[in-house]
Each structure stands twice: as structure tokens, then as C-alpha cells.
Nucleic acid binder design. Structure first.
Lengths: 240, 240
DNA sequence: CGTTGTGTTGAGCCGAATCAACCCCGGTGG
DNA sequence: CCACCGGGGTTGATTCGGCTCAACACAACG
């Protein structure tokens, strides 16, 4: 019940199943296909690149555990994080069309991924199956998140941006079973948050303090609690 | 050679052919398919909605003439423009997967579109044909532009943002044959630019003046000229 | 132990927003 | 013909949100 079991848990495809079933209920065959995924298991240390921008398109795979992000770095060092990749998320599924990766993906914590060529083949075999529908819905939701990010960066204040991102992370982790009530682990430094939100580290720090002072959130070493999700949603214009 | 001919030109699928052929050379059959497109022709006045956010996913179609944009408006009136839609661009091609439209599309000038269900069918029939490849490349490029926009809004200064957007528009119009050397028509008010760039109208005005003062650009009633594209590219970190 | 990375805090500055005029131009209608 | 009007662009004054710089606290770690 301790280390070994918990280790096997961190490697399971459960987050993938949870996420896809949230879109469309998969049938037994498709569920079994995912549980028997035989793609290569890969492990990454924090800071390691899962995908290099401009490099050959990566093979499709799922993130089983850990946090990563897609990002771009400007010549002078400024960095923009496009999105966070959480357990259960797919990576490289648009790739087959695209000649090369559009952004580099970098591990934030230790990360495990599993190759998912089998899923890709199944989608080609059954373009109108539940699995294909679920994967398409996932890609669509990902694009919706990118649009949300554009609004965040272009038209929201720092206060609204932070609230919005916290709600997004909470919602996504809930779907894959990694949020417990309003509590979830968030292994992000303030610098990472800043680069995702288009803010400076110092300012992120001050906004977080304000949110804590107002009893809207609690933060402790890698963990977050949303104390007033409804109010945060109003602040951030968050569309659940 | 005058009004009639020019009118028929504005309705042609030529921009579509130009854009797709820039990705992958289409064969005669595919070219003919596009030229014989029998989808419904639709016309929109400035300000009209081509697609309503949250509404049913729109049928796939191409924009034949005019400018439009995809956008979202916050409850308090703040607006973010996600991207501009130019002649030759597709709209609603991801739609079939997605249950509903992710953003509303609005005409900026008068706009003509043509339904393209035929293209969608052809892609299903020949998933590895040139047409399918070209359309996939187009979607991939569109996502790349969204990522560029995220960098723009999140990590670039107003000066860099304006330069970057002008270069993007010039490049896209060049591909579809609507840029003449460094000159192109740009029927955007400063307010529209502001909402695309996450800036205020007043500030956009000042930045444009600065760029003109520095002889990097020229602007005249709906038209733009890039006087020093290479320097603009350096300023904006624009990756051609 | 020092070292390094992360979070916290204060002071001052600056880029961009806001507020408020004003101009110009193309309608439009008396 | 001219007076009026509204939309877009321009300009100046002022405010403010967020950045920079700099120092310090604290914990993890070799």
C-alpha cells in the first residue's frame, strides 16, 4: 500500500481514461486498448525537453505523471509558457500532420510518458469511434484553452489572470482525479507562474499575497486550495 | 478589365489555391475540385457574425474576399481579437470534431465566403492526398500563429507587438497574392489593432507614429507599406 | 557550513492606460 | 450651399498597474 503500489499508480493510464471518458464514454475495447498501451515508457527529469521546437514532430504519447509545459524562449531570454501539460494529457497528436513541432515541451517536475502510436492507428481504423471522438474533443478543448490564454494575456489584469489560471488548473486536475475537493498539488514556482501569465515574478508574488489576504486561496509548498471558487470565477470571468 | 472583371476576381477561389499550393502542390483533380466548389456563397456586411461563439459548429467554408476576425468579448466590454481571417483562409474545418464554435467570427469589411463541404469529403476519401496534407498544414500554421500571438501578448512590448503583427499580415497577404512588394491594403481601424494587440487605441496610435517617424512603415487610409521589413523582423523577433 | 533556489518586501521608475480635447473628413439633410 | 454630425485619428496631461532593482529570509542540500 505504500511505495510500490503508489509507484505503480503514478504510472497508470488512469488519468488518460478519466480525461477521455469525461468527453465521451469509451467502449470496453477502446478502454482495453488504452490499458494495454505498449508504447515506450519514458522518464524525464525536471528541465528536460520532451519535444524540441522546430525539431521533427514527436511521436504521439500521453503524459502519465508529473507536470510539463509547452513554451517559447525569445533571444533575450524572455519566456512565454503556452500551456501546462498535466497527467492524462496528450502530446504530439496533431504532430503527424505537422512537419515539425511548433513549440518545445519541457518537464517541470519529474515526468513519465508512454508512446501512443496504437491510439493513432485506432483512430485511423475507426474514424467515427468513441476514441476518435474523445481525442478530437480533447484537441478542441486544448484550443479553447489557448483562446482563454489569449484573453488572459491580452485583456485581463494581473489579479484576474492569476485567478483564471488557478481555476483552470483546478478544473483540469479534477477531471483526472488529482484534485481533492478544492485542494490540489501545484508544483510551480512563482517564476513559472509569471512566465505563463505574462507577469514579473515580483508581481505574481504580490497578487498571490493579495488573494490569500482576501481568503480566496491558500498556498503551501506545492499545494493550493481554492477557498472561494465561485468568487474567483466571477473575478476571472471563468466559464466552467 | 474594369468593374465586372474585377468583381469576378474578388469572388474567385484563387487565394485558396495560392495558399494551399504554398504548402503542398495540389494535383489537377484537387485543383479542379476547388475551382468547381459548389458550396453556398454568402455575403456579410462589416460587423456581421460569420459564426456565433457557443453556437453549433459552422459548416466548413473558405473566405474568398474581405477581412474578418475571430474574437471574444468580456462581460464588461473588453474585447480580444484572436486572429484575422484573410482571403483564402478556411473557417470551421476543425468544427466537425468540435461540438460548438469556440469563438465568434465577425466581418471587419464586406466579406464573401463559399461553403466547402466538398473539401471535407475529399479529405475523408483521400486522407493521404495532397489536399488533405495542405489543409492539415494550414491548420498547423494557424496554431503556430496562435502561439506567436501568445508570445506577442505575454512577453513583447507594444512596439514589438505592432511590428510583429504588421509582418504577419504582410506575409499572409503575400502568399495569397494580395501584397504588392512591401505594400498591402489593411482595412483596420486603430481600435481593431488595439484589440488584437492587447493595447489601448491611444497607445497604438503613438506606436504607429513612432514607426512612421523612424521610416520603418508608411500608413495611408487602409493601406500599409513596410519600408524596412528586415529591421522590423529583428525588432519583433519575427521568424519568417 | 556555505550555496543555491525560492519566496518576500520596499523604493522608485516607466510603459501604457485613462481622460479629455480637438481635428479632419465624408456623409446627410435642411 | 452650408450646417450638422459621427467615426476615426491625433495630441497633451495625468494616473496607475506592473516592472526593475535591491536587499533580505528561509529551506533544502551538498
Amino acid at each position: 500500500m505504500s511505495r510500490l503500489l503508489s509507484k505503480s499508480w503514478t504510472r497508470s493510464v488512469e488519468p488518460v481514461l478519466r480525461r477521455l471518458n469525461a468527453y465521451v464514454t469509451l467502449d470496453e475495447g477502446e478502454t482495453a486498448l488504452l490499458q494495454r498501451l505498449d508504447g515506450r515508457l519514458e522518464q524525464f527529469k525536471p528541465g528536460a525537453e520532451l519535444t524540441r521546437a522546430g525539431g521533427a514532430a514527436a511521436r504521439p504519447r500521453f503524459l502519465l505523471s508529473g507536470w510539463a509545459c509547452r513554451q517559447r524562449v525569445l533571444p533575450d531570454g524572455r519566456r512565454q509558457i503556452f500551456e501546462f501539460l498535466l497527467p492524462g494529457d496528450g502530446l504530439g497528436f496533431c504532430g503527424p500532420h505537422a512537419p515539425r513541432a511548433l513549440a518545445s515541451a519541457v518537464a517541470i517536475t519529474a515526468v513519465e510518458t508512454i508512446g501512443a502510436d496504437g491510439v493513432h492507428e485506432e483512430i485511423l481504423r475507426q474514424p467515427s469511434g468513441e476514441l476518435a471522438k474523445a481525442m478530437a474533443a480533447g484537441i478542441s478543448e486544448q484550443e479553447a484553452r489557448l483562446l482563454d490564454s489569449l484573453v488572459r494575456l491580452g485583456r485581463q489584469t494581473a489579479y484576474e489572470r492569476v485567478a483564471h489560471l488557478l481555476l483552470e488548473l483546478h478544473r483540469r486536475l479534477s477531471v483526472v482525479g488529482l484534485a481533492y475537493d478544492q485542494r490540489f498539488s501545484m508544483p510551480l514556482t512563482q517564476e513559472v507562474l509569471a512566465d505563463a501569465l505574462g507577469l514579473s515574478v515580483v508581481h505574481v508574488n504580490r497578487i498571490l499575497q493579495q488573494l490569500r489576504r482576501e481568503h480566496l486561496i491558500e498556498l503551501r509548498a506545492g499545494g493550493a486550495i481554492l477557498r472561494a471558487p465561485e468568487q474567483l470565477a466571477i473575478i476571472a470571468d471563468f466559464r466552467g
